[in-house]
């Protein structure tokens, strides 16, 4: 080990650092306590409960992995899983492409662009449940002209949810993209222009590699948002239509989070299974998010 050089600057910084090093628990404590109470403890208890049968968390009895077996045998869960995967793919592509396109358009020099930015951002300020109810009315009013209704089949419900979520989230992602686009160095764009790059070459070879950090963030946000989607799903269709398929009950437009919720509400025999589903859900979302973060990070460029 290299011996520390004790010059004046190092000494004074040591004087500042020492009390911090000694007393940091005091400053950290409130946050730590909150984190333990609000996250670590419920999380640990949640994992424990997924191996139990219970009515309230107080009277849990250990039953091993039977809850997990029950969860995976549930046709509704498997269906919700497929639904969620499809929904995530569609909404990630749609939201990011549209948000980027709008951001790109609004960073060009045009009149009223800040007004448009505000307007596009506004849907994001409305809560999911409210949006769900409003959109269900809009869709039903439109579908009425064709003598049908939103919950008539799974396709309407699915695309309805895609439209709703896109409408809500595009504005937010757009803001992130705008920030990214504005950070693209002027001189680089100018150099591209002088070198005779076409508009599309500039976009794909210069702009997009430079906004890669924003793309990473937006992809991450849309991915986790679509997996965790709950309020909009509940308020728009609530999982309807609910049909009998191959001798089992399936809510056709139910996504994972809503499925977990409705499983819990069947009765006390299902509390454990719902908890098991929630644990599976967590592992899934966490691993997907980590995988996706690592993948897109590699494409980022140093400016």
């Amino acid at each position: 080990m290299k011996k520390k050089k004790r010059d004046a600057a190092a000494l004074s910084s040591e004087l500042i650092r020492r009390p911090i090093r000694r007393w940091f628990p005091v400053f950290l404590l409130p946050t730590l306590v909150c984190f333990c109470i609000g996250f670590i403890w419920p999380f640990a208890q949640g994992i424990y409960l997924s191996f139990c049968t219970f009515n309230t968390p107080k009277d849990a009895t250990w039953t091993g992995i039977s809850n997990y077996v029950k969860a995976f045998r549930d046709a509704g869960f498997v269906h919700a899983f497929k639904n969620t995967a499809l929904f995530a793919i569609v909404s990630i592509v749609l939201i990011n492409v549209l948000a980027f396109a709008i951001a790109y358009a609004l960073t060009q020099k045009m009149r009223g662009s800040s007004l448009f930015r505000t307007i596009f951002f506004m849907p994001n300020l409305i809560g999911g449940v409210v949006l769900g109810y409003i959109w269900s009315m809009i869709f039903d009013a439109i579908l009425k002209h064709y003598s049908t209704y939103l919950t008539a089949n799974a396709t309407y419900g699915f695309w309805g949810l895609v439209i709703l979520v896109a409408w809500q989230q595009i504005g937010y992602m757009m803001i992130i993209y705008i920030a990214g686009l504005q950070a693209v160095p002027e001189d680089m764009l100018e150099a591209a222009k002088i070198d005779g790059a076409s508009k599309s070459q500039t976009l794909f070879r210069v702009v997009i590699p430079n906004v890669m950090p924003s793309i990473t963030i937006c992809m991450f946000l849309t991915l986790t948002n679509s997996f965790k989607l709950f309020d909009q799903n509940l308020a728009l269709t609530g999982g309807a239509p609910s049909v009998i398929m191959n001798g089992a009950k399936v809510n056709m437009t139910e996504l994972l989070a809503l499925n977990i919720y409705s499983t819990y509400n069947i009765n006390k025999n299902w509390h454990g299974a719902a908890q098991a589903k929630a644990v599976v859900f967590f592992i899934l979302v966490a691993s997907l998010a980590i995988a996706q973060l690592t993948a897109t990070r590699q494409k980022e460029v140093q400016q």
Partner: peptide, 10 residues
């Protein structure tokens, strides 16, 4: 709730 949901759908 689930039983009724299916009846309502139908």
């Amino acid at each position: 709730d689930a039983w009724r949901a299916t009846v309502v759908t139908a």
